[in-house]
Amino acid sequence: MSPLKIKKGATSHSAYDLRPNFSDKEERHTLAVLVENEPGVLSRVIGLFAGRGYNIDSLTVAEVDHLGHRSRITIVTSGTPQIIVQIKAQLGRIVDVHKVNDLTVEGPSVERELALFKVTGTGNDRIEAIRLADIFRASVVDSTLESFVFEITGTPEKIDAFAELMRPLGLEEIARTGVAALSRGAVA
């Protein structure tokens, strides 16, 4: 067999700790998975979660580096610490995966999600809806005489809270993007 050239900076060390303290409590983790932007890569990641019975609470994916041919998949998952370590290790095995970062344990991070809300109503409900939207800094991106479409950004919890408040006021439909997340500070 002829050897190949190993690229500079090729990752061989993984981000996960092999000797963690395991408890049986379920935890929610946000994972940032940097992948080669190849056809089928998302299917590999999703197939892994489905095949091994892991949870996906939220998943977003988009190309983040066109020249470098990289996409970033942000997955919010939950499981016991042992399962979370397994998930990261299994993701690390996928040949198209360059890096797995656990934003939940690797220092502070910011999480944002965007959502669109369609709310219909008239009279007081309509006034209350717009008042609450203002408090939540949601903006109106479409309106008719009996409906609004609000755009809201924030943590998933904030969007959940907004949904709870809109429900009795004529909430018709929600579209959510899923979570995008980055670590805080200067280092990537």
Binding site: L4, K5, I6, A10, V95
Partner: peptide, 9 residues
């Protein structure tokens, strides 16, 4: 082969 770059290592 020797011209092929890989990140799998």
């Amino acid at each position: 082969a020797r011209q092929v770059e890989t990140h799998y290592n």
